[in-house]
Write a protein that binds this DNA or RNA. Structure first.
Length: 486
RNA sequence: GCUCCGAUGGUGUAGUCCGGCCAAUCAUAUUGCCCUCUCACGGCAAUGACCUGGGUUCGAAUCCCAGUCGGAGCACCA
């Protein structure tokens, strides 16, 4: 996979021929459940794994106990999100379990003359670095560096007092690559008990670079924000005589259809403030939310794979996820009636006592619904007929709106086929069940046909002329459903 | 300031490496028609794009240069 490649298929196929094995990793920072954008990595590497008989692991890069402090619940939340998408990692690592390994490699690097301890303040060093000048610590002898690094590992420095830098090229034309920090001191204990005693933590470029080699990663995909990482890590790989994996950088993903910014910290704050109910609030652009809305993980995965791996930023249209999902569920989803903000109209003219529309128009063998009609129905306000207008109540028959009453005319379906009578959905005013439909833009109240009150939790329905929804639960006074899409 | 990277319809993508088969693929979206007791599913059709300017060439979406626009890094974040 060469940088700039935009053809996942042809590229990966070519790569598969060059390597015995395709080994990839997904390296999340466990700071919360995943938002929609996070699905891209597992979608792509998971699909490649299946396609080329490869391998992938999840490696939690949790090496900053302070600024990017890991959330203990996020480790499992992320694995659940992964499962929802339909993938199981071949192996799971936590960087915070592997500190000793990083220390060993740091020692090795020091002995090779590839690193030095430095007590410059960030500001001081930055100034020197920007003018291409080495700091006085760069020429320390190996013995001193080794002993100072051991003191770092032993926790004998405070945060900010000492770092270990990789000796790269202080005059490199790209300032981003000059003598970068490999280890620093952090006073705050890691939230994981197993790692809480460590104070000397590796930076991403060191940790990730070492791990990618040790784990045998052959292909790395990462964001353009890390486009200098490979060049930085190359210095370490050169010291150790390692070959760097193939790298692809891709741009950021934006998702339309949401008011809420797709950012873990933003969503987290909104939940904190009570603006959102939780990570699975239908208004949140998270995987937990899509799951609760009844969207199949596969629909998301397919949409993500279609985005490819271009280095430019891309917009994911939720409509493409919805289109994929509709394709997946339409055939097996039963139809039901739901009337939002219903307006009650009395019936006259002795209509049938019960309506029996099919559960699915393309599958009559699945049977019919039983909807008692009663003396009055609810219609959506947009569907209200004009005076003397005829409408066809779906599954029931033709009615004419006369003197504030819907009078049954007993006409047959030909009036619809002739095209001058609109077909609309309805529910009985007396026996319908209250429904709260939770949507991306907020909750909507409605009434559904009686059988909806007995549907299993987790069942998907299509409310005719409204859209798909997942039955979430039945509370005392209402059924709660999550709107999937139209 | 220094350093990287990118630019095909509303969105995503194919084609770019190896110039002609591209008056540009497919999907989605939108619109219209057909089917239908749903504004679902299915079928048909329409709309709609190679950032700009130079250069090389018989020929450029594709190669070269410049510009414009956009993104990213230069953290003791990931």
């Amino acid at each position: 996979m060469e940088p700039g490649s935009t053809s996942p298929d042809s590229q990966a196929r070519q790569d598969a021929e060059e390597h015995d094995d395709i080994r990839m990793r997904c390296a999340p920072n466990p700071n919360g459940p995943w938002h929609v954008g996070h699905a891209r990595m597992p979608a792509v590497i998971g699909t490649y794994r299946e396609r080329y008989d490869g391998w992938f692991c999840v490696r939690f890069d949790d090496t900053d106990p302070e600024t990017k402090r890991p959330d203990l619940e996020a480790y499992d939340a992320i694995l659940e999100d992964l499962e929802y998408l339909g993938f199981e990692p071949d192996e799971i690592f936590r960087a915070s379990d592997r500190l000793e390994t990083y220390y060993e490699h740091a020692h090795e690097l020091i002995d090779l003359g590839g690193a030095y301890t430095c007590s410059c303040s960030g500001e001081e060093f930055s100034e020197l670095k920007n003018s291409g000048e080495p700091c006085p610590h760069r020429e320390k002898d190996v013995e001193t560096v080794r002993s100072e690094f051991e003191d770092m590992v032993a926790g004998e420095y405070e945060s900010g007092e000492m770092v270990l830098r990789v000796k790269t090229d202080i005059e490199h034309k790209n300032p981003a690559l000059r003598d970068w920090v490999a280890f620093r001191m952090i006073d705050t204990p890691h939230p994981r008990e197993e790692a809480s005693e460590y104070r000397c933590w590796p930076m991403l470029d060191f940790q990730s670079g070492v791990d990618d080699h040790l784990i045998g990663i052959t292909h790395i995909i990462r964001g353009i924000d890390l486009q200098d990482s490979a060049k930085r890590q190359q210095f370490v790989y050169d010291y150790f005589g390692w070959d760097y994996p193939e790298v692809v950088h891709w741009g950021h993903v934006q998702v339309d259809a949401y008011d809420v910014k797709m950012s873990t910290s933003t969503i987290s704050e909104l939940i904190e403030e009570g603006e959102l109910d939780g990570w699975d609030d239908p208004r949140a652009p998270t995987l937990k939310s899509l799951r609760r809305r009844g969207i199949r993980g596969q629909a998301i995965v397919d949409a993500m794979v279609e985005l490819g791996t271009s280095t430019s930023d891309v917009d994911l249209a939720m409509s493409s996820v919805y289109a994929n999902n509709r394709d997946l569920v339409d055939d097996e989803t039963d139809r039901r009636f739901l009337v939002r903000d219903g307006v009650e109209l009395p019936l006259g003219g002795s209509p049938p006592a019960e309506a029996n529309p099919p559960l699915h128009p393309n599958h009559e063998e699945r049977g019919v619904r039983e909807i008692p009609v009663g003396d009055a129905v609810l219609l959506e306000s947009d569907d209200l007929p004009a005076r003397e207008e005829r409408i066809w109540l779906k599954g029931l028959g033709c009615f004419q709106y006369t003197r504030d009453t819907l009078q049954y005319t007993g006409e047959d379906i030909d009036v619809v086929r002739e095209g001058d009578v609109d077909v609309i959905h309805w529910v009985p005013a007396a026996e319908s069940v209250p429904v709260r439909l939770r949507t991306v833009t907020g909750d909507v109240a409605g009434q559904a046909e009686p059988e909806v009150g007995a549907l299993e939790s987790d069942e998907l329905v299509q409310f005719e002329r409204v859209g798909f929804a997942r039955i979430d639960r039945h509370e005392d006074d209402e059924t709660v459903a999550y709107y999937t899409h139209s």
